[in-house]
Lab assay of single mutants.
Amino acid sequence: DESNKPILLPNESQSFERSVQLLDQIPSYDTHKIAVLYVGEGQSNSELAILSNEHGSYRYTEFLTGLGRLIELKDCQPDKVYLGGLDVCGEDGQFTYCWHDDIMQAVFHIATLMPTKDVDKHRCDKKRHLGNDFVSIVYNDSGEDFKLGTIKGQFNFVHVIVTPLDYECNLVSLQCRKDMEGLVDTSVAKIVSDRNLPFVARQMALHANMASQVHHSRSNPTDIYPSKWIARLRHIKRLRQRICEEAAYSNPSLPLVHPPSHSKAPAQTPAEPTPGYEVGQRKRLISSVEDFTE
């Protein structure tokens, strides 16, 4: 099969070098950035008060330690540790928490760990991170309901609301924008112990962030949302095809390698009803078989 044979790379090609550099910018793992907010007593309706908090309760602090690993920003190499735009020179604080497994990295933009500057009256330095995160974990210690939209931002799609209760338990629920209701189930609340709260809140936030990324990708319907490693695979396959075309153009005697095509017509299947918005969006999480067989 010609399409699977190794090909020689061009010795000097600026377009090839640019493509390789672009490939280096696509990590081999999925990345997520999640905002974390603490809401104190009497702050449920005040964005400024929430963003001005420099610490929270003892249970909130224990919750943070379970979310991930504490890292010092100045020691991080952005090409190895995903920071979601946090500055490593102290502009966004000294520490944050991050978490990773074999296929993804997540960083938490924690408002109480970011510096509260006197010259920044409206807390814009914090909002440029927190307001651009799709998902926020809100530790609501106010005793009042927290409403979506209290923290203004164009991309605040989903809130994971943590409400501490007695007996070391917590109520965990989801809020989302109306255009996200087909992807996020907000109907079920959970009672979770303090011990298990970081794991549950983190998983709910990661799932909500993946759904938000799919939702946000609708602005470019021709580019369905893939995982990062599938995006790398697609980029490599496009690069291979372009090299083959350039080689055939410079030397017409060489065969032009095309991806294999299936001449056999697909079997006719009964027509199915058109899937609704929710089903269609969830299918976009699934990769096409052509990603692996071309």
Rank of each mutant, 00 (worst) to 15 (best):
S219E: 13
G66N: 04
A35N: 02
R195V: 08
S28L: 13
V107E: 14
H215D: 02
A247F: 15
S46G: 02
A271G: 09
K121R: 09
D75T: 10
S15F: 08
S217F: 11
H159Y: 15
G182R: 12
L70S: 05
Q175D: 08
A247R: 06
S173R: 10
I151G: 03
A231F: 04
L148Q: 13
N251Y: 13
F108K: 01
D145W: 02
R284M: 06
S15C: 13
L23Y: 06
V289C: 11
L174S: 03
L48W: 10
E54P: 03
Q213T: 11
N140K: 00
L64T: 03
S13D: 13
H32G: 03
P266W: 06
S219V: 08
E12Y: 07
H216E: 08
V200I: 10
V81F: 14
A49R: 04
H159M: 14
H235Q: 14
F292K: 15
D141I: 00
K152R: 11
Q25M: 11
P266N: 13
R282Y: 07
P78Y: 11
Y139C: 00
R218D: 06
G84W: 05
F199S: 03
I110R: 03
E62Q: 09
V138C: 02
T269G: 10
Q21T: 10
R128C: 05
T269I: 10
V88M: 12
V20Q: 07
V160M: 01
P221I: 06
T112S: 03
A271C: 09
I110F: 03
N11T: 12
T186V: 09
T116W: 06
C244R: 07
H258F: 11
D92K: 11
K117F: 13
V20I: 15
M114I: 05
S19G: 11
P10K: 08
N140Y: 00
E72Y: 09
K126C: 04
I110K: 03
D223R: 07
P259F: 11
E294V: 06
V192D: 00
P260L: 12
L197W: 00
V257G: 15
V192G: 00
F199W: 03
L9C: 15
S288K: 11
L86M: 10
I71P: 09
L51Q: 02
E246F: 05
N4T: 12
S288D: 13
V36S: 00
N53K: 02
G85T: 05
P270L: 10
T274N: 11
H258D: 15
I50D: 02
G84C: 11
Q154F: 13
P252S: 11
V135S: 02
A248N: 08
R238K: 14
V81D: 14
Q14P: 10
F146I: 06
A248R: 07
P260I: 13
I243Q: 05
S250P: 14
Q154D: 13
W229F: 04
C169E: 09
Q43R: 01
D194I: 00
V107F: 14
P27F: 03
D75A: 12
S212T: 04
N132L: 09
T163N: 05
F155M: 13
E181M: 11
K126L: 05
D166T: 03
E245R: 10
L51G: 03
H109N: 03
V289P: 15
L48K: 13
D87F: 02
H129R: 09
K237N: 15
A248E: 09
I71W: 04
S44A: 13
S193A: 03
A205V: 01
I26M: 15
P259I: 12
P260V: 09
D79G: 08
R195N: 07
G182M: 08
Q281N: 13
E72H: 09
S44G: 08
V160I: 12
F155R: 14
N45G: 10
